[in-house]
């Protein structure tokens, strides 16, 4: 699979729930067409919360990778 093209990055590490998930939603709303957004989120409860919001809103998760104490989540509309 060709690596997806990321047009934007959003770092919500250190931002508590649910503000982190709300920022991710707002950023996704601004994506156009096939654009992808890379979100950097804290591991643990934060990634769980963000994943939950993404599923509830029906957004597409393309790739998730652990990066030290954070997680990179690549999402599309």
């Amino acid at each position: 699979m060709a690596s997806p093209e990321i047009t934007k990055t959003l770092d919500v590490q250190g931002i508590s729930c649910p503000a982190n998930a709300m920022r991710v939603r707002a950023a996704i709303a601004e994506l156009k067409g096939d654009e992808l957004l890379e979100v950097l989120v804290d591991e643990g409860e934060a990634v769980l919360r963000v994943a939950r919001t993404l599923k509830d809103c029906g957004h597409r998760i393309v790739k998730v990778e652990n990066r030290g104490e954070g997680v990179s989540v690549i999402v599309g509309k």
Binding site: M1, E43, V47, L48, A51, I61, V62, K63, V64, E65, N66, V71, V73
Partner: peptide
């Protein structure tokens, strides 16, 4: 499955 790997992180 689109091989996103979320389950591994979660």
């Amino acid at each position: 499955c689109n091989d996103c790997g979320l389950c591994v992180s979660l």
